[in-house]
Every structure is written in structure tokens, then in C-alpha cells.
Design a binder for these strands. Sequence first.
DNA 1: GCCGTTTTCGGCCCGACTGTTTTCAGTCG
Length: 585
Amino acid sequence: MDKEQVAEILIEIGILLELKGENPFKTRAYANAARTLETLNEPLEKIVAENRLGDIKGFGEALQKKITELVTTGHMTYYDELKAETPPGLLEMLQIPGVGPKKVKVLHDKLGIKTVAELEAACQAGKVAELAGFGEKTQTKICEGIAFRRTYASRHHLSKAIAAAEPILDTLRGHPDVIRCSSAGSLRRSKEVVGDIDFLVSSKKPSEILEFFVSQPGVINVVAKGDTKATVIITGGIQADLRVVSDAEYPFALAYFTGSKEHNIVMRQRAIQRGLRLNEYGLFKSKEETRDSKLLVPCKTEEEIFQKLDLAYIPPELREDHGEFIAAEQGKLPRLLEWTELRGSLHNHSTWSDGHATLEDIVNYMIELGCDYWAITDHSKSSFQAHGLEPARLREQIKAVKKINQSLADQGSDFRLLTGSEVDILKDRVDFDDDLLAELDVVVASLHAGFSSNEADNTNRLIRAAQNPYVHMLGHITGRLLLEREPYKVNQQAIIDACAETGTWIELNANPYRFDMDWRLWQYAKSKGVKCVINCDAHRNENAGFLRLGAGIARKGWLTKADVINTLPLPELMKALRHKRDSKR
DNA sequence: GCCGTTTTCGGCCCGACTGTTTTCAGTCG
């Protein structure tokens, strides 16, 4: 049992305890432990075997014992019993907006409701409104919440959220009474998937701004509207929150609403350690609750807040309590990659396989966009569903690319198309022979089919591909499709180690459904010296925009310009591409 | 359930909004 599986169980225990009405700090202890596990850089089995779990903060006697039992025997008596006494439908009921653990407990204890379907029936029969603490409105809201969940997913791809948020942000910026405004929350932190969109505005006329916001054409439902805050549902079913504050409060509110929750908790603790109190309204020289401006430690920007807490400025993408505090204290935060530092993409498709643009269209579009190069890596023959290229066809494509490059050179253009292949990783080898791969500028090796349910099999296939001297990088190593398909089972750490040994790069696939490899693993990869390539995996020219999204995810992974291969100018890139095969010779 | 320069008990981040109350609990972020 690996750390991800253990973490999942700990999170579930936390929720189950909440449903039982347990002490909230106890439930949080489980959630905290789960988060800590996910950031570990060595196998949990090893830590358990060497009895070192207690060295990690947040793992006391009880958790050590339970986790050790789980890792060594594959099950945990405490969890099994807890799960057995809680109907599974109760967990699902928590997903309904406005329904939390306390309400679920009452519904279960008083009405015997065990599933979402039973809850909906009880609402329709009017039984829920009769319960103490419930009423007509709560009952209606639950019904609407259930119906909403049926219609819309509650989580959204980053790209969809950005597309929905940017026009609203522009509109808000144009309002004469708006002083400063920004998105906040997980969108600002560039999380791969977001639950809702947060906006923050500073203004002297909050009620007018809120009225303006809820009457926007894209708003299909107003969930809540108070004096400083409104919640709406916008087109596409995404929830959007707006908070309006004074301009003096703005930096504090921006830091607060950007989160993450875990990051904020540490920020508050740091304030307390310094005899201060931090909330969304300010940083106060007081241990008591106050908004007394005489006690305010004035800060005009987020930078100043961090400074007052003895920290370097932490970019939003890093605010996940993933080590940013230690680095910010020691002045060791990296200067993160800027998306404008990317010069092209090394994994893309054309009409030769399953892409929608011709080579000529791609060249014109990418030159217009300001790229220096663009690799054409169409599928290999085994991906017949994607019109994968036979060797002869690939050799034709190489000629076609060379001809285009010759004509670019003749016109005095410095832009170059690179030849390449996204070669399938088959059971025991990659799809093309070495002599053909040797003719290509760029080789991306990816798994597309025949995933085993056996983690070791998948992992070994990827490791063998990394060992091939002609393979520059591994593509989308988990095959996940966010919100649609689970990753195939694979030991990512072992793959990173193999890439470190063989000098193979790992792709950060910038398709917003993939963002694969996950940002949580890049710090480890970086520590092993593994380089990243941010690739569009473009099937249409517009997909070039994925570079910006991918850079946001790379920033979450603490990556700098030096960590990312496709920031290199063309001559250096070509040198880097030749390096692995040369060193094998 | 964890933790300790208030250390073996009593804390644990903090506030807005809603609905059901008639002063507050639950939920959410």
C-alpha cells in the first residue's frame, strides 16, 4: 500500500469522524497527516519499516500505530469498523451545497436517510422542513443542490475557469468605482482543477459593485448576496464569488482569498508567534479580535505582508504549504519560469496523423505567434486509431519538413520546424527501430494502449523507453484525463529516478485535461536533476495557448527557466537534443 | 489526534452569510 492510498484512507477517516460528530480538531489531524504523506519524497514502506514515522510532525502515537498496521497488513481495523458503521451514501450527501456533517447526521438519525435519492424523496415529501434546525428554504435548497449536481460537475478544468473569469474581470476593471481587482483562490494559484472562481475588488461603493456583478449577463443564478460578498452561478455552471473590500484592506483580502487554506493557516500562526493577528482585513498589533485601524500594521501590497512576517514574497502558485515557508524564510525561493520564456513546443501533431493543421499552416501560425521552433511529432504506426505513421510515411514527412525549413532559410527566417515522432511504447520496445529514430530531431515516447492493471508492468515499460538512447523524453507519463479518466497505475518516483539515470527529460503535457506529470512531483524531479519540457501536444494551432497554462503548472512545481528545456534558443536546443545519443555512443 | 519558550492539559485560524432562531448553529471558503 503506497502513500497515496494511505492518504486517501486518512482523508476518509477524517470525513467519517466528522459525520459522527467527533471533535473537529481530531478530524483535522487526519486530514493534515494525509497532506503530509503526499509530500513525502521516500517510500512510506521504508519509513514504516525503519520506524521513523514519529519523526514527522503531525504523526503521534495513535496515527503511527494505525498507519503501521495499514502499511504492513493492508488493512486498518479502526478504519474498517468506522466504515462499516457509516452508510456510504452519507459521504455523497456532503457534496450537496449547504449540507455539512451536522445536517447529514440529523437527517440520518431522525429520518433514517442513507442516500442522496432518499434525501431527495424526503425533501419532496416535505419531511426535511419539519426537522428542528431545518426549514422550508433549506429543504428547497437541498433539492436544487441535488438537481444542480445532476446537471453540472462541481469541478472544472483550469482552462474553462480562466475563459469564464477573464471577461468578468475585464468588465469589473472597467467599472468606475473599482479601485483594484483581481481573481483569487485556486484560479490565481493556477490549480489544475478549480471548484469555483473568486474575484476580489476594492471600492468605496461595495453595494453598487455587488449589484453590478450579480446583474451581469453571464449570471444565471444568484446564490447569495450580502453587504460585502455575493455568490452566483455563471454560464457553464461554474460558481463565482465576489468579495468587495476597502482599498486599505485589499492586500490582506487578496492574500487571504488566494489561499490555499493550508497556506493561510501557517500565515496566521506566524502572525500569532509575533504577537500579531492576521485576517482578511489586516495584520493587527493585537492578540484579540479587532479591526481598530490604530492597531493596523499598514501594508499596501501582499509583498509587505510577507515582509512583516519575515518572509520573501511567495508567488500565488507556490501557496500550497509545500515547503514555501522554509524557502521564503531562507531567501531560497526560486525565480519561477515566465511563460514568455518558452520558445516553442516539442510535442505536437499535424494532419499527417490526428492533428487538424497542415505543416504550412503550423509554420505560419507559430511564426506569427513569435515562436522560435515547433516540433512535429505525429503518432507512430501502432496508434492506428490516430492514423499513426508507417516508417515510410514518416520518412516522407521528414523530407517535407526539411523542404519547408529550406524555404524558410531562403526567406531569411530563423524559425524552424523540427522533425519528430510521438512513438508508442509497446509491450517490450518502442514502435520504431533505432535507425529511424536516429533520423529524427525529437523523439517523445508515450504509452497509449495496453495499460496493465499491474503497476510494475507499466512502470517497467516506461523505464525501458527512458533507457532507449534515441528517446529524448517521456510523454504524459500517467495518461490521466482530469475529471474524466484516472491515471493508469504507475510508479512515478521510479520513473523519475530512471530518467535521472538515463538523462531523459519528462514532459509536462500542457493540455488542460492532462497537466501530466503532476505539479506535486516536479520538486522531486528537479532535485534529481531531471529536466522538464512543457509541451502543447497540439492538435490544432489554437492549442499553442496551452503553453501559458503549462507554465502556470510548472510554476506550481517550483520550476525555473533553467529547469525547462524549451526555454532554450534553437542552437542550444539542437545541441541538447543531440546530447543523449552522443553520450551513448 | 497532535503538540509543547503558557509542556502532560487545554489549546488547536478566522469571519461572512443563511436560515432558523429570537441569540445562534451550521456551512463555506
